[in-house]
Simulated scan of single mutants.
Amino acid sequence: MRMNSARGVLSGVILAAALAGCVTVGDQRHLKPVPPKLVASMQAKGMTVADPIVIRVFKEAELEVWKRDASGQYGLLKTYPVCRWSGQLGPKMQEGDRQTPEGFYTVRAGQMNPNSAYYLSFDLGFPNELDRALGRTGSALMIHGACSSSGCFAMTDDGAAELFALAREAIRGGQEGFQVQSFPFRMTPENLAEHRASRHIAFWRNLKEGSDHFEATRRPPKVASCGRRYVFNASPSGPGARFDAQAACPAYTVEAGAAMMVAAKQARDETRVREIVASGRAAVSYTYLDGSMHPSFREILRRSGPARLQALTSGAVEAALAEPKVTPTGTLSAASVPF
């Protein structure tokens, strides 16, 4: 207990140092407490404000905060509507493309900005090691307030304040950095089947591996990269071997408990994907103007008038794709059948 307490004090000092010097005098927004209603919800779920968090965010315009409970596993604390994200489904590729990143990121105290131009924010840490290995470029990709996005996940100011408070208290409680898992959509068999014709499907299936590790174990996976892809809960087998995003993966083992649970989940999901495809459900494609927002905000804007709705929103247009045709050789187009 003394060690945990000391670690919490040290983390609090580090956080205070990171936040000092960039805070406008008299501005206390970064010190807003976690709302009492949310604290009560934590207590009912066996959590405290100091327990670690994980953030999962989806381009379905929802953000989830998960928190470790008394069992040591993570439970869903609250789901927030995302006010705005920009770009298309798929990872961020280069500076200026307006793409919101997809992948696994870690946010530490130094990435939290209490004096953000967008109310409050924290930097995702893009590009991570894998992004750099893949030649992806960009900077200042954040989760923030102000409901305005150019490559970020934008929340309402109230939502950003709650997220900042939750992250602040977790770091003060001893969490060195919290994981942010950013996905194009929830990694369900239904979504993977529908998006099977996308050029990003191989990357998304790699993201699903990490999602499966979290959903099967209810713990944030240990994330590394090698062979230009993510690996999860893995350790190199040989002495001196290490993971390098740009090099081929060395022999490695996956934590036994996690491996068994994840394999079982993946087998179930793959069976379901095949059933969906076999049922004749068409793959879909999306043509984007510029990202999207949660339906709740669209309704607010709709009541504000068509001009404002058109100015601030541009949703996805869904179109069914023709099913792949069998060639004279009896094979299917690889682009159409990525499974």
Rank of each mutant, 00 (worst) to 15 (best):
P236G: 03
E209F: 09
G46N: 07
D69W: 04
A161L: 11
L89V: 08
D51T: 02
M1R: 14
L10G: 02
S86N: 08
G291S: 05
V57S: 08
A334D: 10
D27I: 03
A316T: 07
A109W: 04
R274V: 15
D244Q: 15
G26N: 02
I14H: 02
Y286S: 00
I276T: 11
Q43R: 14
N4V: 09
G103A: 05
L89I: 12
A40F: 10
D131T: 12
V231H: 13
S336R: 10
N233Q: 12
S5K: 09
V65Q: 02
F126D: 04
M1W: 14
F164W: 01
L163G: 07
Y105S: 13
G305M: 11
G210N: 01
A170V: 00
S198R: 10
A245L: 12
P236D: 02
E169W: 00
Y118N: 10
L166G: 07
L38K: 07
G72L: 03
V57M: 09
A307C: 01
G8T: 03
P295V: 01
W66N: 12
A256V: 07
P52W: 00
G315L: 03
K78E: 15
D290K: 12
K32T: 13
W85D: 02
A264S: 10
S333G: 14
R298H: 07
Q28T: 15
M93W: 11
F214A: 06
G177W: 10
R2E: 13
L10D: 07
R56E: 14
A6N: 13
G138Y: 02
A61N: 11
Q111L: 14
L207P: 03
R172S: 06
S296I: 15
K45V: 02
L124G: 01
T271M: 10
A234I: 00
S333F: 09
M42C: 15
G138N: 00
A202E: 14
T24V: 12
I201E: 06
F164V: 01
G46D: 08
P306S: 06
L31S: 03
L332G: 01
L63P: 11
Y118M: 09
K208A: 10
V273W: 09
E215G: 06
L10H: 06
P114N: 12
R136P: 02
R218L: 11
T48K: 09
F243D: 10
F58K: 01
A251G: 15
S285V: 15
S150F: 04
Q179F: 04
Q99H: 14
K78S: 08
P81S: 02
A170S: 03
K59L: 06
E270S: 06
E215D: 14
G305H: 08
G8E: 13
M261V: 12
V57H: 04
Q43W: 04
Y288Q: 10
A202D: 13
E60I: 06
F232H: 04
T48S: 14
R303A: 12
R218F: 04
L38Q: 04
L76P: 00
R29M: 09
G177R: 01
F243T: 08
A263W: 00
P306E: 05
C152K: 00
A18Y: 03
Y74G: 01
A17G: 08
F243C: 07
T137L: 05
A154R: 01
